[in-house]
Amino acid sequence: MILLDRVTVIYPNKTVALSGASLHIQPKEFVTVVGASGAGKSTLIRLLIKEEVPTSGKIIVGSIDYDTIDKANIPHLRRKIGVVFQDFKLLPNLTVYENVAFALEVSGVKNAEIKRAVPKILQLVGLSEKAHHYPGEISGGERQRTAIARALVRNPKILIADEPTGNLDPKNSWDIIELLLKINRFGTTVVLTTHNKEIVDALKKRVITINRGRVVKDEKVGKYSL
C-alpha cells in the first residue's frame, strides 16, 4: 500500500515540484503515472525511496510512516522497494550475474543464498544465457532486464519503474512492459512512469496524470492524455 496525503515539495530555489498531491495505491496494483517533463513524476519517485523529504504532507508505504523512520533504517526501507531507471544504473565492471548478486551482497545475504537466488531471477527475466556478459556487451533491453532482475532479487513488495523504456526501441520496450506485467501477476505492486502513449493506452490499467505538481486525473482504466 502506498499513501500520499497532500504532499508538497518545494526546493530551496523555490521551485514547487509537488503541491498538495494525494494518491492511494493498493497492494498488487499496476499503476502508470504520466505527466509532462517537470510535472513532478521524478520527485514522486524520489519521495518513495526517501531520497527526498516532503516540505509538508504525509507518506506511508506498507506500514512505514516516512515521518518517523530513522536515518539508519532508510537502507532497510530501500531493500523493500525495487527501483529501475531509464539509464539502468548498472556497474560496468561487473557482469550481469554480479550486478544482480551485488544487491544481495550489500544487504548481508549469505553466499549460498546468493548462488541460489540469482540464477532463478535471471531465468525469470530471460537472461540466463547472458549471466557472464558485461553490461557493455548486451543490448539496451537486456540491460534493463538486468536492472529489473537486480530490483526483484530481494522480493520487494513494490517495484518502481521510472521510464524504463525511455532508451529502448519499440520491440524491447514491449518486452520490458510484458516483464513488468508478469511480475505484477506474481503479486508485486508496480508503479510505472512513462512518456510512451502507445504503451499506456494499450495497457488498460490505472493511470494517474500529474500536471504542475498536482494529481489532475486518476482513472481506473486510463489513457495517455496531458
Binding site: P75, R78, K89, F102, V106, S107
Partner: peptide
C-alpha cells in the same frame, strides 16, 4: 560516485 549511488539505491548501509 556512480557505484556509491547504486549502492545507496540497492539499500547498502552507511558503513557498507
Amino acid at each position: 560516485r556512480e557505484e556509491i549511488e547504486i549502492m545507496k539505491l540497492v539499500g547498502a548501509t552507511k558503513w557498507f
